[in-house]
Design a protein around this nucleic acid. Structure first.
Lengths: 340, 340
DNA sequence: AGTTAGCACTCTCACGTCGAGAGTGCTAAC
DNA sequence: GTTAGCACTCTCGACGTGAGAGTGCTAACT
């Protein structure tokens, strides 16, 4: 029928805001009385009917109020919610905490997830940045006892990997250090693929170490990043889960199985800025009643991670988008500043 | 009144087992028909009345069946449930998986938590072992760029800590290595307290590094061990939480806040073997409806961790105790074998 | 004294009914 | 295009009811 006029858009905006706040279907009287719309309830009902025909509103049942549909939320997010930015003092507080924290990628991810979860009272996921191609910075061999050494590998981005290595014959620490020095000449600054191309060294022990190293590196690149999850309790405290025992279990199962890529699939990280997946736009079955706000950070090519917020479709989108945007930007800045 | 006769104990055992299996109050008829007790339902009712007077059974309401009380479970665990040991093939399967896994304390903790949670369908907590007094094995300085170095510290138990250190003046990697060598002479084999007692070195940079090192070590000993938690979903799937939205949130909150010491307080780790805390025996308010089966492992004095199982009081105690005991023993064995 | 059958009693649970309340859609008038 | 009036629909909680389950008590039996 008729397009979405200004007044209708205004009514949709009111319904989204009121519903997000109260979690109860919104009626024409509330819109009239509480928001002072210059039209009678009857007129507003007309408009609501039109919005429903457009697929932007839904009725839980005849004669309850209206509730935004997924498409309604989509329209709200795209053109109705307006400027999404955090107030300056809030930014400053967050920023301050990052500068207080230890300069560690994992530490920052923890902090960001905690802040995001507490700020919205919802579920926050933050993936610490992982580089595609691991590059060895330095390597060390430490003898633990006569038959066991610890191989410590420092990567370019200041991450540290380690692996126990059994020794066939007893080594003194001095010998191990010499061996480590030889190995360093060979491997430092190299990536896994480069290592694989090099000819194998003559010395058997040396060769074993190189193989072990290559093994650690491949295993590490294959491993999913340990995504930080915060705010499960807050999420489950949302009124939508009060009755919905099934949905509650679904969410907990996702977190429990660390199936974070079902929540934030790689594809959704394609774009540059913040993107929002609303209700049935989510690929995962368990998230049909939820929305995900996500932003990648880091340089797309090499080191990259993401900040994500998960809540019921009835979430505070403006605040969510603003917080996710600010945190992802801040994480990128911190990375540049300290590593980079 | 009368003591707990053999027949009464038998009936208590049946009630515990039946209730654990079905999660529904157990009536006299079920005990008679399903378990073939050689007494009529009326007699069994008499006995149940006596058990209730002893405080071992409870009635949810007049004329439902009986349910074990916390004290009833206590008696079951102590004298009725009998031999708690895993079948040999199950032990072998578990053992096999440990030998397959990477020889890492954290890895083992992950594995143990996963196995325990899946085996019982309940919540499992495994704390990787932490030593009281951290002892430095080796230290390394790696220059990341002109003004930033990474201090890598290897501890005796093959754990690795790291910290970024800003440099006041530019250093070559060669200089850093020399510095590291000097530092190693000074610190390797020392504990934090020993380090604190040493006189400060003359060289300013060297002194800065020692301070940084001491800082890392104290921070690390202060930090709670990162306890592995598995099986939240399984736990919440238990019938007791079907209706109890509040209890569900309580459990999730505990996990969410990583308040593992509320679940497994240090005191409960006093004893040597497996200990069981049933219902109101738990100090935490949130766990009044739950039981905790826990066993420490490692040498009490130095490196120690624990294996814990959390479920509703209606849990399979025999299996729980057996699994916790086997896993804690196995973890201790693995530790001895590889580190030790 | 311990055991048992018989029986009335109690309590939960599922189901249906009912009235209040909320909000709608429609109609007719402005 | 807007509005008042009004009948209609649907949810929700309160209440009542009957079936079912299991008990506690009593009286008889071994």
């Amino acid at each position: 029928m008729a397009a979405v006029t200004d007044r209708r858009a205004g009514i949709l905006r009111i319904i989204v805001r009121e519903y997000v706040e109260t979690a109860a279907p919104v009626g024409s009287r509330t819109i009239h009385d509480k928001y002072g719309v210059p039209a009678s309830p009857a007129t507003i009902r007309h408009e609501m009917q039109a919005l429903e025909e457009e697929g932007l509103l839904e009725q839980p049942h005849t004669s309850a109020g209206r509730v935004p549909s997924d498409r309604g939320y989509r329209m709200y997010v795209e053109s109705l919610m307006g400027q999404a930015d955090l107030p300056g003092d809030e930014k400053a507080t967050i920023r301050h905490q990052f500068f207080q924290a230890a300069p560690e990628l994992d530490e920052w991810a923890d902090l960001a997830a905690g802040l995001l979860a507490r700020s919205l009272g919802l579920l926050a996921l933050v993936s610490p940045p992982r580089s595609r191609e691991l590059q060895v910075k330095h390597l060390e061999l430490i003898g633990l006892n006569e038959i066991l050494a610890l191989l410590v590998v420092v990567l370019r981005e200041a991450r540290v990997l380690k692996q126990l290595v059994p020794l066939d014959s007893p080594f003194e620490q001095a010998e191990l250090s010499v061996l480590a020095a030889r190995l360093n000449e060979r491997v430092s600054g190299r990536t896994v693929t480069e290592l694989r191309r090099e000819p194998a060294p003559d010395d058997a022990t040396e060769q074993r170490m190189i193989e072990t190293l290559a093994g650690i590196l491949s295993e590490e690149s294959a491993r999913e990043a340990a995504v930080r999850v915060e705010g499960v309790a807050g999420m489950l405290g949302q009124p939508e889960f009060q009755r919905d025992h099934r949905g509650m279990l679904d969410i907990v199962s996702l977190v429990d199985q660390r199936a974070t890529d079902r929540v934030v699939p790689r594809e959704s990280l394609g774009g540059a800025g913040v993107s929002v997946m609303i209700g049935d736009e989510n690929p995962a079955d368990e998230l049909q009643q939820c929305s995900v706000v996500v932003a990648p950070y880091g340089d797309r090519a090499d080191m990259s991670g993401y900040v994500a917020l998960v809540g019921p479709t009835r979430m505070r989108y403006a605040r969510g988008v603003a917080t996710v945007r600010y945190l992802s930007g801040l994480l990128e800045e911190m990375m540049d500043r300290v590593y980079g």
